[in-house]
Design a binder for these strands. Structure first.
Lengths: 196, 196
DNA sequence: TGATCGATATATCGAAGCGATAGGTTGTGG
DNA sequence: CCACAACCTATCGCTTCGATATATCGATCA
């Protein structure tokens, strides 16, 4: 999940952790975003696997404002030392590698176990071929239809035994899924009409 | 999350783990259900905390359908032997304690961080007072409106910079949230009309 | 000037969740 | 009688989360 998110965003542009999280929040919504507790370990994992690498920060702020004091000078020096692979203010900027790009294509074509994974596949599907794009959408439709079928089954079995609140919850959920299916169906049609 | 689910279900009736999971799946849907890897540790935690306890399986199936065969009789006998704190077939049946009931009321009134927690609060809200029920619904509405506001904000900021797929995703998500708000609004109205 | 505040940024910890898997039991059909 | 599916409990390794620690930068204001 996070793997796909990070690789997709880094394919767009080089970023550091904090920015990565912000972009992800915009796409996925404030909920269902990722936490730092997952993001930084994930970045470390990906770096160890050679799919991302820390890049020279294109350091757009070359002017170190001199403080005039010894302490200031010393601090500036210390800061400068730490910047071999870091941008200003200790930022660590990551970029995607060729291995990472291959992995991204793999993840885009792979199964979408949960809603968030599908959302990410859709957001980054422009990095894959048209036939893969269609596959993603069709797989999603199948998954949604299966979900709907199970819900109807549940209602059919013990719909009358359920209390008022539970019943309205399940009914609302069912309607939401129906709308999702209509939406994805329209997406598929649009995609099919699009010239190759 | 799981804590609320287990306590709520056990307040309804005494159950064993496997059955607990099945009921949960019916309510929450096949996705967003809980796995055994969370359920059994959670049951152990709750038992250690004295909120649930293993009960004498009240063996509600007094009528062992006689098989007519000797093998059937023998199997039934063997089964009957093994039942100290377990129901038929090694099932471990749990019940809720008084501490557990207090905790349940607490969790019902508490904040619903994610969608699943809200779903559970709604399903079990019949175990709480009418004013708490209303509070749950209103809190949910506030949360949904905040979500909607953030989404609109995102679109307003960089809606034009987003690619086709991302934009349709966010738009669909926004519409879903709007429908959720309409639904919860209707629920609140119904609840307010209900005589105390 | 400096004091403080909020946003930016990296990182780690413990708790809790998940998917896979491995057991063991019971009922069913061949 | 056996094989097989469904039932049931349980644990392992890994991922994720939420909270927290730490530090820097920029702006506001006394």
């Amino acid at each position: 999940m996070i793997e796909l998110a990070v690789l997709g965003l880094l394919k767009e542009s080089e970023l550091h952790g904090y920015e990565l999280k912000k972009r992800l929040r915009d796409v996925l919504g404030p909920l269902s975003s990722v936490s730092f507790g997952s993001l930084y370990p994930a970045l470390a994992r990906l770096e160890a696997a050679g799919m991302v690498k820390a890049v020279e920060a294109a350091d757009t702020a070359p002017a170190f404002p001199m403080t005039g004091s010894f302490a200031g000078e010393a601090a500036a020096f210390r800061t400068a030392r730490r910047l071999s692979r870091r941008g200003p203010r200790g930022k660590k900027v990551y970029g995607i590698t060729e291995d990472g790009e291959r992995r991204l294509v793999e993840l885009l074509a792979g199964p979408a176990d949960d809603d968030r994974t599908f959302a990410l596949q859709l957001v980054f599907c422009r990095f894959s071929e048209p036939d893969i794009r269609l596959r993603i959408l069709r797989q999603r439709k199948v998954a949604l239809e299966a979900r709907l079928h199970e819900r109807r089954h549940t209602i059919g079995n013990h719909g009358d035994r359920l209390d008022r609140y539970t019943r309205t919850l399940i009914e609302h959920d069912t309607e939401s899924t129906e709308r999702d299916i209509e939406w994805i169906t329209r997406l598929i049609e649009t995609e099919e009409e699009t010239p190759a």
